[in-house]
């Protein structure tokens, strides 16, 4: 039984222009309680890898360049 790829719209958005993960910053990845953010190997920028968000906002509050925006997950918006 192979696994399907069911798409979801993720609530955490990262502005690639502002994100400095490619310069070594990992703040948003570090602080997330659910550990859902990662740095992309392709772009060097942070992104939401797992759609498991409590919309709690440390990633946004602690980002040194204001690159992260937390929106409300669509299912409860």
């Amino acid at each position: 039984m192979p696994l399907a790829n069911t798409p979801t719209s993720v609530p955490v958005l990262v502005d690639a222009e502002k994100c400095i993960a490619d310069k070594g910053c990992t703040v948003c990845v570090d602080v997330c309680p659910l550990d859902v953010l990662r740095i992309s190997e392709d772009t060097g920028k942070a992104y939401m890898k797992y759609d498991e968000c409590w919309y709690c906002m440390p990633c946004e509050a602690d980002c040194p360049t204001n690159a992260v925006t937390v929106t409300i997950p669509y299912l409860l918006r």
Binding site: P33, L34, E52, C53, W54, Y55, P73, L75, L76
Partner: peptide, 15 residues
């Protein structure tokens, strides 16, 4: 399960 059906949309921190 919260009414939204979103596994992590809980009252408590889902961690």
């Amino acid at each position: 399960l919260p009414v939204s059906g979103y596994l992590y949309g809980t009252y408590e921190n889902p961690t």
